[in-house]
């Protein structure tokens, strides 16, 4: 075979291989790109689904809360009013006046509780007034019970949070405070909001009986799981520090 023939054949083969490499590279690169787009879309859909599920859970919990409030608090006060009115002795003016005064006080309490419940349930309200005002309201509510001494502290400027994040943080705060009331048997609760650099931290501390977080998680405590789940949805992390008889500290850390 002459040199020129060898050159031509080698040239053709090398050029064709080079071309095949370029075309394969192009197709593989495109395939990778499409796979990346598909995965991105999947993640977006999953997140949207989780967000929806979480919102439904929040709604379910809110309805449960309304039910408890109506039964345990408002219902009791209303029953008391009814008893007072039923047992009103009009022939004894002094006693009757006293009962009417008690009943008026109970009606006032009922109205206040209704207003408080309305504010507590309204997510739009929390978005409108902001997270700080919402938490102030929760702290005020705790202090009003007379069984708790709650305080709120703010360090650094409050970040500009979007509506969704505000609602999630507000509802998480409510759940943490409700759990504290139900389970901690403590006397003091401290809530602090702190912004340092690109991190917004919300910390809840109580002096209650505490618990073993690991054991609670292993036993499948749905309250803690829910909180973890919601924190993940807003790209935040939830840190729980607690030990039996040593109180509890729960921190929500949100990168800004």
């Amino acid at each position: 075979m002459a040199d020129i023939e060898l050159f031509i054949l080698t040239g053709i083969i090398v050029t064709l291989l080079f071309g095949a490499f370029i075309v394969s590279f192009l197709l593989v690169n495109q395939k990778r790109h499409f796979r990346y787009l598909r995965e991105k879309e999947d993640i977006k859909n999953t997140t949207a689904q989780m967000l929806l599920q979480s919102q439904l859970e929040i709604k379910e919990q809110t309805l449960q809360h309304i039910s408890h409030e109506l039964h345990d608090n408002l219902g009791q006060v209303a029953s008391l009013i009814k008893i007072n009115l039923n047992t009103l002795q009009l022939h004894d003016e002094q006693k009757a006046l006293q009962k009417i005064e008690d009943t008026k006080e109970l009606v006032r309490q009922l109205i206040t509780d209704l207003k408080s419940l309305s504010v507590h349930l309204n997510s739009d309200w929390a978005v409108q007034v902001g997270l700080l005002r919402g938490l102030e309201n929760e702290v005020e509510r705790l202090n009003k019970t007379g069984q708790w001494q709650a305080s709120l502290k703010q360090e650094g400027p409050l970040p500009d949070l979007d509506a969704n994040t505000t609602i999630f943080l507000y509802r998480m705060a409510q759940e943490i405070l409700n759990n504290t009331i139900k389970h901690s048997s403590g006397k003091h609760v401290a809530v602090s909001l702190c912004t340092t650099g690109n991190l917004f931290t919300l910390v809840f501390t109580d002096d209650g009986v505490g618990f073993d977080p690991e054991e609670k998680t292993k036993s499948g405590g749905s309250g803690l799981m829910n909180l973890q789940h919601r924190a993940r949805l807003i790209q935040a992390t939830l840190n729980i520090q607690s030990a039996p008889a040593n109180g509890t500290s729960i921190a929500i850390e949100l990168p800004l």
Binding site: I8, I12, G19
Partner: peptide, 10 residues
């Protein structure tokens, strides 16, 4: 690309 590869060498 194919045609001119052949054309180039042949």
């Amino acid at each position: 690309l194919l045609y001119f590869t052949g054309s180039l060498f042949i």
